[in-house]
Amino acid sequence: MRMTTGARIFWTRCAMLLAALLCWEVYARLWADTRFVSPPSLVLHAAIFELFREPGVIDALVTSLWILFVAYALAILFGVAIGLAVGWSSFGRKAFFPVVLLLYGIPQVILLPLFVLIFGIGPACKIAFGLSHGFFPIAVNVISGMKNINILYLRSGHSLGASSFDIARYIYLPNMLQSLFTGLRLGMTLTLLGVVLAELYVSTQGIGYWTKLYAETHDPAPLFALIAILALMAVILNELVRAIERRGLRWRG
């Protein structure tokens, strides 16, 4: 039986994942210290019978999900607005783009304790920290989307007698769109990072509290399960943004 390359790639990945889980299961059952490692089967068990029966955990997950949505929405709003403001003129790009890039390069996590001092330990702090992470990739990509344009498209538009509005609407905007989508994808990843960092830092409530509790009581199964659920959420959200990107950029074929 012959398989297409796509199918071969898919099955190779599945086999690798299965092999890894199997190795982990065998290792955890035979040799590992149960205070630190638990086998995948017990993790699954813990997810179903411990985590999902703990209203505190469900609450924490739901809360961080809506914190993420608010932070991401704000990051898009500010990122696009400031990106447009800076990218509009070539002078604006020249003067402010390097500033934005340098700010983007600063490890923002050093501001986390300050954010907690300013906004407290509630959702406001986590939203603000997620926003401050997600904002930069969106702004940067909007700006570079306005900068990188094929000069021939513009010349062709001019030769056809297009107005400035026409050129903005039919050439600059769609050209910026692909860069914007890249920004939205990166923005999602970084907003998530910001929210997770804040969640883990504030360990008196929310997800940070539960991870700390499970780690300190040497109960690895629910800890692994909680992390796996969060990672799964992250993967799903990223795929969601990717799916929207694919729809928006159908022409890239």
Binding site: R185, T189, L193, V196, T211, K212, A215, I227, A234, V235
Partner: peptide, 11 residues
């Protein structure tokens, strides 16, 4: 790389 690996930090 697209998921926040910080999630694994407790491990």
């Amino acid at each position: 790389f697209a998921i926040p690996l910080t999630l694994l930090f407790p491990l």
